[in-house]
């Protein structure tokens, strides 16, 4: 069972899609990074917190039938790599969607949902999932 501290530590990324932008080259990273792998020491102190655009399109996807225990009640469920409008690739579940109608290029947006829970009395984990953007 994960600690409560682990849950709140992840809130900026999981709730608000906060990543980091390198002020030297302009590249946006998600999740956050302490320095830019391209600019290296030049980027130290110049990494700025930015919120990713919550809209994007499906870059590729899969429908999971063999799920981890935490997601067993959801299966089959869809997961996708989504390219946001600010050109960052992120991974998450794709929900509120007809599984048969998912296709690459489909417009989606990130919403806050329950991810899973540590049993009946444990911490509930929230984070972003994607829904069709219609």
């Amino acid at each position: 069972m994960a600690s409560v501290a682990k849950e709140w530590r992840e809130i900026p990324g999981r709730y608000n899609l906060e990543g980091t932008k390198c002020d030297c080259c302009g590249k946006v990273y998600f999740p956050e990074r302490n320095f830019c792998p391209k600019c290296r020491r030049d980027s130290i102190g110049k990494m700025k917190t930015v919120k990713l655009c919550r809209e994007g399109e499906v870059f590729s996807y899969s429908i999971i039938h063999d799920a981890p225990a935490a997601n067993n009640s959801q299966k089959p469920y869809a997961v996708a790599f989504v390219k946001t409008k600010d050109d960052v690739l992120i991974a998450g579940q794709l929900v509120d969607v007809d599984l048969e109608k998912i296709e690459i290029g489909m417009p989606v947006r990130a919403v806050l949902r329950k991810l899973d829970a540590d049993g009946a009395a444990g911490v509930i984990h929230y984070g972003f999932k994607f829904v069709p953007n219609v």
């Binding site: 996807y61 999971i64 799920a67 981890p68 997601n71 690459i104 899973d116 984070g127």
Partner: peptide
Amino acid sequence: EWEAGMGLTLTSLYAIIARR
């Protein structure tokens, strides 16, 4: 944290590669 923790499995990551 950012793949398995978001509901993706290792198999689904390779499936995403295959689909692409």
